[in-house]
Simulated scan of single mutants.
Amino acid sequence: MTSPTALCAGRVVAVTGAGRGLGRAHALAFAAEGAKVVVNDLGVGLDGSGAGSGPAQQVVEEIRAAGGEAVAHGGDVATADGAASLVATALDSFGRLDTLVNNAGFLRDRMLVNLDEDDWDAVMRVHLKGHFLPLRHAAAHWRAEAKAGRVPEARVVNTGSGAGLLGSVGQGNYAAAKAGIVGLTLVAAAEMGRYGVQVNAIAPAARTRMTEEAFAETMAAPGEGGFDAMAPENVSPLVVWLGSAASAGVTGRVFEAEAGRITVMEGWRPGPTADKGARRSPAEAGETAAKLLAASEAPQPVYGAR
């Protein structure tokens, strides 16, 4: 059933990793606001193994059963062909693409001394490359539209993580990939604004396959009033708004979203500084650094640190 606000009526939205968890919640929420949705999912396991079309098709059937429009896409968006076909599926099925939500991912958690190269590469591939390639192909389409005089109201919502902002013990590969996604978001927002494209990122916290073990103690059953604080559906309203035309003027920003809380994250910016106007000795550099550190704010603790 479409929401009375129909915030995304007429828009076409592609969501990667939309067969389960956050991606599924996003796809259903966009459809409820009137969007036509391309539901991408490989149907892999938590560690990226295996594949199947079932999860994506199930979400498509859910959307259709509620009166919406959706198609499934089973391509691997961490490949050039898969990412290109995601954009092509939107254009072939619905004639346009307005919003891209990059969400696909999986985990290969290890402490650094036990983290092997394959686990590093696999997580970098699905998270970082799996964001870059769909963004690159969607951006090329939107730039061509703008140059043809059809400037879009295009939106990209990337999926970061608190792990990429603060770090997370046992997740060196995941944290590095998610930090890279934030950097990619900032660059894409700066480069694509002239073509009518806004790019933002979220750092969500919700109960999904990827988080149920890490946050087992904090992901309890619904509390007073039946509010399930860790339901992935709590994150989706912000994603839908960022993916709609209503978010005009918002780009290059990162938001934390958890339960009923939304936070605008303020990233790296200059803090205390000292300029001698000449080269320091190592001892002088150390003295200066110590004074600056004493005047600075302490960093937030790394997730999982004791």
Score class of each variant (00 low, 15 high):
Ala146Pro: 00
Ser168Val: 12
Val126Gln: 07
Leu135Ile: 07
Gly130Phe: 08
Ala122Val: 02
Asn173His: 11
Ala201Ser: 12
Leu135Ser: 14
Pro134Tyr: 11
Val182Asn: 11
Lys178Ser: 01
Ala190Asp: 09
Gly193His: 11
Met192Phe: 15
Ala122Glu: 10
Leu186His: 14
Gly162Val: 10
Met192Thr: 05
Val187Ser: 15
Val126Asp: 04
Ala190Met: 12
Gly149Val: 02
Ala190Trp: 05
Asn173Ser: 07
Gly164Phe: 05
Glu145Gly: 04
Ala140Cys: 06
Ala138Glu: 01
Ala139Tyr: 00
Gly164Ala: 06
Ala163His: 04
Val157Arg: 13
Glu153Trp: 13
Leu165His: 03
Val126Ala: 11
Ala179Ile: 04
Gly193Ala: 10
Val199Arg: 14
Gly162Ile: 14
Val156Lys: 13
Val199His: 12
Ala177Leu: 02
Leu135His: 07
Gly180Glu: 09
Gly149Thr: 05
Ile202Phe: 07
Asn200Gly: 02
Ala140Pro: 00
Ala188Gly: 05
Met124Ala: 12
Arg194Glu: 15
Lys129His: 06
Asn200Met: 08
Val197Arg: 10
Gly196Trp: 09
Trp120Pro: 02
Lys147His: 13
Val123Met: 09
Leu166Phe: 15
Gly170Thr: 02
Arg125Lys: 14
Gly130Trp: 10
Leu135Tyr: 10
Ala163Cys: 03
Met192Pro: 00
Arg194Gln: 15
Gly130Val: 04
Ser168Met: 15
Arg150Cys: 02
Gly167His: 07
Glu153Asp: 15
Val151Trp: 00
Pro204Asp: 06
Gly160Met: 09
Ala201Cys: 08
His127Ser: 02
